[in-house]
Design a protein around this nucleic acid. Structure first.
Length: 692
DNA sequence: TTACCTCGAGCTCA
DNA sequence: CTCGAGGTAA
């Protein structure tokens, strides 16, 4: 083959674009040698020369630039903002196992569901500790990259992801389907992380806390050039599209196919047999954890036979053919320096342990909630105690246990205060109740602050610029006692507050003015009635379509609303019975005052989309049963409790019961939650999940 | 719950 | 330059 130089001499004059294509092919080849095979054929200097030649050529002949050119990795202009995009196939999460028994139980369920007594082959992989991504290749070219988001919609980070070296902008070969969606993880290797922090330290800048957060931050840079400089890595671990191809019959084979297309795939993936094979793999991985070049937080096991995936199904948000076996959460000892009592919106008193800050799982932990007083009593945590702390479910700090032998002499048991720390009103704990409550109601400044925060929050009246610190000042200076007072203050009043100038004050008043025009559901939600969240507020609004009618409703009438049980009905009735609440509502609606208003809701469709259809729900669903039932009822469907031949659909959640078997026996259509969501979307707007 | 990024705007000092 | 608010991710 000709050397690049000879090539250049021959082709440049005749066809610059052909030379550009040749250079791209060469660069892609050397990228693969370097990043994937770790076996470069040419020096970095030679590689750079190829890249510079391509850059020069493209600069001279811009018509030759293609989107998959390696020159397009960097240099893209900063974005103005991230946009969201919808995943064609939802990005699921995985069920977790934390013990050998839970893993064996998973295997047992798999075998039971597949109706086969043989051991199944699992694909075993490390669970990389990064940021989940979905890449989309169309006709072999990378066109889209998105974060997981809520699983259905994520952020478009294409420009950032294009800068990841070693990630092909064009798939190798030509045997790919027209559309390939690759699921995988972006991360920073330990080495890159250390190098970045060393550089930051040398410049006297702030260091990153851990590789995962550093990777997440790098992906969320508006300027892709910064992302490029961070040195991210990507590893694929699955496909987001279903393709009927021989290599797709086995998960491990599809990983090999990804590698053949030039994609880096999760290392150490291999086949293991049955639960015993999974456990052996897990132990071997755990032993090598510290020696790996990147952080992992467990192992993932997937049934390798993809034909079995369809039979096992995907229920709720996680597939039934895979499980993540997490490594035990790191436990760190620290000292309880204080125990504070926080007052929530409903007056609930929550004890919070203030800890001597310690690093747990890559972050500094200084607080741990004890949830309620009963929990505090059970754990018998006292000030001065040494406790073991971990981050449960990877997120929320939790006091696992205390070390009795390290308790200092004279450490006194924490007692539930008689009086609210914020307002001094009596604290009551009903016998047998777990939660203690401040009786101060909305006279309690802490409850007032929480109520105002809730009122201004995104799904309530969405008042931008009214944050925690501002609410603190407003309540502490007694400028605002209830939400209606917010609307009575002037720009000058707000401008007089700390860190508020004329500009901020004007913006806030404008945001308040915008919030006056709202919806009934948002208004009901904003009131902060106990037990009434976004979905229930929506159900109440849809049922009465008028605030006066709702305020006059009796408990039995309230019970008629789908999704409303005795607890909610009592709370709603009790709320509207309070003269104070009625006064605030009147103030909020007063045309001469706050003047909150909303359009009269549309009457429901004459013929609801799911009229005559009968549904049965089973298993653990992502929302309370009653909420999902309400959505179905709002569209005219019937929801019953037992599966019969008359049932049209069974909606199966996590760990469905005997109804699932019966539905299959009767040939009733079984829907996953995702399928139900699609059906509801198609069936139109009966009762959307959000009050909007 | 913590970490990180982005934006707007106030604060501080030249 | 620094802070508060708002968003996202695990």
């Amino acid at each position: 083959m000709d050397t690049p130089h000879d090539d250049l001499a021959i082709t440049q004059l005749s066809d610059p674009c052909a030379r550009a294509a040749e250079l791209r092919r060469l660069i892609a080849h050397h990228d693969l040698r370097y990043h994937q095979l770790d076996d470069p054929e040419i020096s970095d200097a030679e590689y750079d020369r190829l890249l510079r030649e391509l850059q020069a050529l493209e600069a001279a002949y811009p018509a030759c630039i293609t989107p998959d050119s390696p020159t397009q990795r960097v240099g893209a202009a900063p974005l103005v903002a991230f946009t969201t995009m919808t995943h064609r196939m939802p990005m699921l999460s995985l069920a977790n196992a934390f013990s050998d028994d839970e893993l064996r139980e998973f295997d047992r369920r798999v075998r039971a569901a597949l109706g086969d007594d043989t051991e199944w082959i699992y694909a075993a992989e490390p669970k990389l500790d990064g940021l989940a991504l979905s890449l989309r290749y169309e006709h072999g070219v990378l066109v889209e990259a998105a974060t997981r988001g809520d699983g259905h919609r994520g952020e478009d980070v294409t420009a950032q992801v294009r800068t990841i070296r070693g990630l092909p902008l064009r798939l190798r070969g030509d045997d790919w389907p027209p559309v390939v969606e690759v699921r995988g993880e972006v991360l920073l290797s330990r080495a890159r992380f250390a190098a970045l922090n060393a550089a930051a330290r040398a410049r006297g800048e702030k260091e990153f806390a851990n590789p995962r957060n550093a990777a997440a931050g790098s992906v969320r840079q508006l300027d892709p050039r910064i992302t490029a400089a961070r040195g991210l890595s990507f590893f694929g671990h699955g496909l987001g599209t279903v393709t009927d191809a021989p290599w797709n019959a086995s998960h491990l084979a599809s990983l090999r196919q990804l590698a053949a297309w030039g994609l880096p795939v999760v290392p150490e993936a291999r086949a293991v047999l049955g639960a015993a094979g999974c456990l052996a793999y897990y132990r071997a991985l755990l032993a090598r954890r510290a020696a790996l070049p990147y952080e992992i937080d467990g192992a993932v096991f997937k049934i390798d036979d993809r034909a079995a995936w369809a039979r096992l199904g995907t229920l709720s948000r996680a597939p039934h053919w895979a499980i993540a076996f997490k490594f035990p959460a790191e436990e760190v000892l620290t000292v309880v320096e204080a125990i504070d009592f926080q007052v929530g919106r409903t007056g609930a008193i929550t004890p919070v342990a203030r800890l001597r800050p310690v690093r747990v799982g890559g972050v500094n932990v200084a607080n741990a909630t004890l949830h309620n007083f009963a929990e505090l009593e059970r754990k018998d945590v006292r000030v001065g105690d040494t406790v073991a702390v971990r981050r449960a479910g990877d997120v929320i700090p939790e006091i696992v246990r205390r070390l009795p032998e390290r308790r200092p002499d004279g450490a006194a048991a924490v007692v539930l205060p008689d009086h609210c720390p914020a307002c001094g009103a009596a604290i009551a704990r009903a016998p047998g109740e777990v939660v203690a409550r401040c009786s101060g109601g909305l006279y309690c400044p802490a409850q007032r602050k929480e109520a105002l925060k809730h009122f201004a929050s995104r799904h309530a009246l969405d008042i931008r610029g009214l944050g925690e610190r501002l609410i603190e000042q407003l309540v502490d200076r007694d400028l605002v006692r209830d939400p209606a007072d917010l609307y009575a203050l002037t720009v000058a009043d707000y401008a007089a507050l700390e860190r508020m100038g004329a500009r901020s004050a004007a913006n806030l008043v404008a945001a308040l003015a915008r919030s006056r025009s709202t919806t009934l559901a948002r208004f009901i939600y904003a009131l902060g009635i106990r037990e009434v969240g976004a979905a229930t507020a929506q159900a109440l609004a849809a049922h009465w379509r008028d605030l006066e009618a709702l305020m006059a409703a009796s408990v039995p009438e309230l019970l008629a609303v789908p999704g409303v049980g005795p607890t909610v009905a009592e709370q709603v009735r009790g709320f509207f019975d309070q003269p104070h609440n009625r006064e605030v509502i009147a103030k909020l609606r007063d045309p001469a005052g706050a003047h909150l208003h909303w359009p009269a809701p549309e009457p429901p469709d004459a013929a609801p989309a799911l009229a005559g259809k009968t549904f049965v729900l089973t298993g653990t669903l992502s929302a309370p049963r009653a909420t999902i039932a309400a959505r179905l009822l709002a569209r005219g469907a019937k929801v019953t409790s037992a599966v019969s031949a008359q049932t049209d659909y069974l909606v199966a959640g996590e760990r469905p019961g005997s109804k699932y078997e019966r539905a299959r026996a009767l040939g009733v259509t079984v829907l996953s939650e995702d399928e139900l969501a699609t059906l509801l979307e198609v069936a139109g707007d009966g009762a959307p999940a959000r009050p909007d």
